[in-house]
Amino acid sequence: MKSISKILVAIIVLLSFTSCNAQTKNQKTETVKIYGNCGMCKSTIEKAGNLKNQSIVNWDKETKMATISYDSLKTSKEKILKRIALAGYDSDIFLAPNDTYSNLAGCCQYERAEKTIAKMDETKMEMETKDHSMHSDEMTETQETNTLSVVFDTYFSVKDALVKTDGNTASAKATELLSAINKVKMETLKMDVHMVWMKVLENLKAETTSISASKDTKEQRASFISLSESMYKLIKISKQETPTYYQHCPMANDGKGANWLSKEKEVKNPYYGSMMLSCGKTVETIN
């Protein structure tokens, strides 16, 4: 009996040793973008990409980035991405077959980067012009800061409207903000900004939409809490020319406290309006 357990231990040790060994040999890890939406996409993407003793894929549905680790002697990034594309998910190397994409579950029908595949001749010209605008790197650089700063500036307008407890203006400004968000070409963003952008995008859109849909400042303020959180993450990673102040009011949000961003150091609370205009303090200065 004893000898059996000894043998078992020996076998287990041996096995774990070999498996450890296998994992570290020729291992390569890369981060790539894979378009997708939800948890269901995640499992499909990972299932398609994973192959025993060859590759492990971990896709983040927030950032749409996948970490792929693979044995570079046995397989390649291209092979893995090809399998994932054949399961319906685009990447920067492969585009999924159109019929496979349209057979994805409704919630997985992510927005495709290239929507012009099906209509070939009519859209060809458009594609070309788009191409030209993207050729100059400097141009995209300026564009990036421009588009994001438009987002921030519009956010400040929404905030100012809420400070004044002006539901109509807040709603109008939120509509502006939404279009500014939609105009951002995320592929032109820097990698780290891009990652955060992908993470917060959905929230930004959702909260902005609900602010724009309502004229009631109470509802708008509730959405503004979460919107400000996302904006904070975004402004922290993207470099802006002038400092921004991250401010906190401990009483807002039914005593749970809430934050907002401001261009001015002076506290002007967007959650209470004139009632408690100066309640709050600057918790962080973002340069």
Binding site: K82, A85, L86, D92, I93, F94, L95, A96, P97, D99, T100, E114, I117
Partner: peptide, 8 residues
């Protein structure tokens, strides 16, 4: 450019 695959 990017490769448009055909479904298997």
């Amino acid at each position: 450019g990017k490769i448009q695959l055909k479904s298997r």
